[in-house]
Design a protein around this nucleic acid. Sequence first.
DNA 1: ACTCCGATGTTGACACTGTCAAGTTTAGCG
DNA 2: CGCTAAACTTGACAGTGTCAACATCGGAGT
Lengths: 226, 226
Amino acid sequence: MPEGNKRTRSRSAGRKAVRPRAAAPYHHGDLQRALLEATEKLLESKGVGGFTLREVARRAGVSHGAPAHHFGDVRGLLSEFTAESFKQLSASMREWQSRAPDTAFDQLVALGVGYVDYALRHRARFQLMFRSERLDWNRPSLAAAGAEAYRQLIDCVERNSREAGAPAELDAEKVALAWSIVHGFATLMIDNRRFAKDCSGDSPTRALDLVRRLIESAREAFERSG
Amino acid sequence: MPEGNKRTRSRSAGRKAVRPRAAAPYHHGDLQRALLEATEKLLESKGVGGFTLREVARRAGVSHGAPAHHFGDVRGLLSEFTAESFKQLSASMREWQSRAPDTAFDQLVALGVGYVDYALRHRARFQLMFRSERLDWNRPSLAAAGAEAYRQLIDCVERNSREAGAPAELDAEKVALAWSIVHGFATLMIDNRRFAKDCSGDSPTRALDLVRRLIESAREAFERSG
DNA sequence: ACTCCGATGTTGACACTGTCAAGTTTAGCG
DNA sequence: CGCTAAACTTGACAGTGTCAACATCGGAGT
């Protein structure tokens, strides 16, 4: 094709550094970031089923082959993207915890609400976090981010258990229970209309109220000694 | 292509009705069934990410266009397939219940274990049941099968609640709790290696034991009155 | 200051996918 | 016994992810 510059990068159409914008690195600028952001927007508008590597490249204003140089393949991109998601999930849980009383059980409840709140606010992102066929858990960034969130949960459950005077042998079961409740609630809320309808009538606030009550109703299970 | 019969149907290669096999209807026999069975095998071997309409057609020994005449499009096929899955899930829960003592709470536990047992035995099938982007819940067969399983859960929770003398106003919450626990446990078991490892070390029996204990530990939540 | 090297981005091809319109075959009704 | 409509095939189309070959350019080393 002799002419026709399809590229619509935001910078450097003419010479070099038209505006001395803060840190306009080299070739593209920061394609890595641009691709991750394009992924987020695409996911938000089209859902997890509408995601496409080529469409992401298009939205970032680069050719379809470009992403490979940064992420390898699709699973690579989605894995890095999901690593960010796990960090955001951790942040959401911490955020809710920081606004709650510093009592062991209040912290556990806040962590659970923070989990569900994040899931409902970023549905496609959350769905992707557990679509193992599209992820590569061998990626260090993803493994680390996942482990970090997991550790938060464990620490929180163990603290509550310990302060209730319960034996540590039951901690693993309690972790499983906590994660199952919040994760099951979140995924059903997203993937099952009947559940969502009956539980909250599609009202996010009611959903959060409900999951709070669920955790509270299981308090004895989290503090039992036998 | 002048020659070369690629078709490998099991019957009618020569004239007509070589063997008067029991009910060999007409064109194919029963493509609908054949496609659903091919879907199951493909899903088992390649997982939910490896599923392809054309591959299913190939395995059923028909052309890639054939499935459309029975299911419309991919979502149609997967929806009918998933309707069967929900029926099987209901059967699994009923099966476990029939082998448990006919006490309200034992029945609730059995239902939960039956849920998880089915999920772990048919992972891809189970995953598909909650991949809403690939399903059409307007299909009557799917909607009905889903409703049936849901009703089983509701009835079971309500019976236990009633026999414990708890007010019916709390039933909705208890249903949400029960479904969240078993569904969260099942999905995490399938989609999260860390959870699976820490919970059961990939032993199905230990997994079922664990989910049983989780439900039992939350007994008070299911029977509370306040 | 100049030269390369390798990271970054492009292009075109490949095999594959789901869908659709247009054909063929054939079962079984009238 | 013919005909029609359902069942199935065929070929095309626009997309997809991946790969190899190519172009471009920043910056490190001399």
